[in-house]
């Protein structure tokens, strides 16, 4: 049985694409046939984060419009077996996505034996974001320990619970909270929301905490999903997320403040 997972957040810039790339690569590395779809029509970036930007010939919208077959548009990853990327269109507007088209692509992926279909949502709560979540079985809500991100996550949860296909059919989407850009030192110092606070406010189960890490930027610079950087804390934390998603019990790591550690200047962002 294949599963559709949306990676969403409401707010932009919190790490949806980074997380989608890492998560999909992690699932594939575990032997599951995985496709990751970029729903950000007009502003595609998943291709860049995954380092396949020069291999894009056809895109998601071409497939929906019948201008290319799914096979032609899917890019097979060269690092990880079982991993395929479906890029968004760069030129069309967001209205290019429609329920019927998206559903037919998802169904074709299911028929092709994909175990997991990861939908990388655009920011916002408009058409692209709605299309990305509509067919989801499960959702990963990417949240930064920061007020506007938490509020937007709450908003997106409301939409998942009322407007998704599952919700319309009286079911529920399984929700997972993924906290990214977490700085235990700042939490300890009292100037960042703790993961407990965020879990309490959003009241959905936590699937992982990704520490603030220079490795994330380095990974995107070089077009490698950060999960492949097995030395980095972020890479390891993502790999724990994948294990937890697959049902393993893995303790949280990198959540305690450390006395001396890098990432000190990083903290001045925003």
């Amino acid at each position: 049985m294949s599963k559709v997972i949306v990676v969403t957040s409401g707010k932009g810039g919190v790490g949806k694409t980074t997380s989608s790339a890492a998560f999909a690569a992690g699932l594939a590395a575990k032997g599951h046939k995985t496709a990751v779809i970029d729903f950000d029509v007009g502003l595609r970036n998943l291709d860049l984060i995954m380092g396949v930007e020069r291999r894009v010939v056809y895109d998601f919208v071409n497939v929906i419009n019948g201008e290319a077959t799914l096979k032609q548009a899917l890019i097979k990853d060269k690092r990880v077996d079982n991993l395929y990327i479906l890029p968004a269109s760069q030129t069309r507007d967001k209205d290019a996505l429609n329920k019927e088209g998206v559903e037919s692509v998802i169904n074709e992926l299911k028929d092709d034996g994909f175990d997991y279909i990861v939908c990388d949502s655009p920011a916002g709560i408009e058409r692209g974001a709605f299309m990305a979540l509509y067919f989801a079985d499960e959702a990963i809500i990417v949240t930064n320990p920061e007020v506007s991100s938490v509020r937007d996550s709450d908003r997106i949860l409301g939409i998942l619970q009322s407007r998704s296909k599952k919700a319309e059919e009286g079911g529920t989407i399984k929700e997972h909270l993924l906290i990214t850009r977490y700085s235990p030192n700042r939490v300890e110092g009292g100037d960042m929301l703790s993961m407990d606070d965020i879990v309490e406010i959003l009241s959905i189960p936590l699937i992982g905490v990704i520490p603030e890490s220079g490795a994330v930027l380095q990974a995107s610079n070089s077009g490698n999903p950060v999960i492949l950087d097995t030395e980095s804390t972020a890479g390891q934390a993502y790999s724990d997320v994948v294990d937890r998603f697959l049902g393993e019990e893995v303790a949280l790591r990198f959540i305690e403040a450390e006395v001396e550690k890098k990432g000190f200047f990083k903290k001045l962002f925003g």
Partner: peptide, 9 residues
């Protein structure tokens, strides 16, 4: 911690 983080919460 009765700091900005708790205010945020």
């Amino acid at each position: 911690k009765k700091d900005t983080a708790s205010l945020a919460k």
